[in-house]
Design a protein around this nucleic acid. Sequence first.
DNA 1: CTATAGATAATCT
DNA 2: GATTATCTATAGG
Length: 178
Amino acid sequence: MAPDLVGCTLVGADAAGVIVEVERYQEDDPASHSFRGPTPRAAVMFGLPGHAYVYRSYGIHWCLNVVCQPAGQGAAVLLRALAPVDGLEAMRARRGPVPDRLLCSGPGRLTQALGIDGGLNGAALDGRPLGVLAREAPVEVLVGPRIGITRAADQPWRFGLAGSPHLSRPFPLERAVA
DNA sequence: CTATAGATAATCT
DNA sequence: GATTATCTATAGG
């Protein structure tokens, strides 16, 4: 499901962007919050698929995940970067004086740009205030190791849209999948 | 371009 | 007390 989310559109309350970078996390993955079972924080990961798992990162930022099927599995996809397509003014207002390239180029940046916080933890991703739209055309997806983790760091579980200028970081080897 | 400090809170040891 | 699915500002090459 993670590579299939690349190219889809994330729609917020007043802004939207194409998902250009994601990472997958699941229960048997030591880097995943669901690794220790349905703890208070990770409970949503074991809940309804298609809902949002929002957690605080480094005490400062919010990060958004899409909970995966089937229910109760503890699997989710972290949204790491968007290509802004709508509501640019609202994003700029929330993000401050950064270049447009950096508006949504990172998991914490993307949530700040869309105004997403812990209040949306567990929310359905089926429309307002948050939703995901299917992509309209096939895309070329890159694969590489995940970013910012120490456990299972060599697993190629990060996926990105080939050629996007909005990735949080480039992919090491441009290997295509899907 | 790389390197590093600092902010800050939930979770882990 | 240490670590963490991060970001920004600043200093140096």
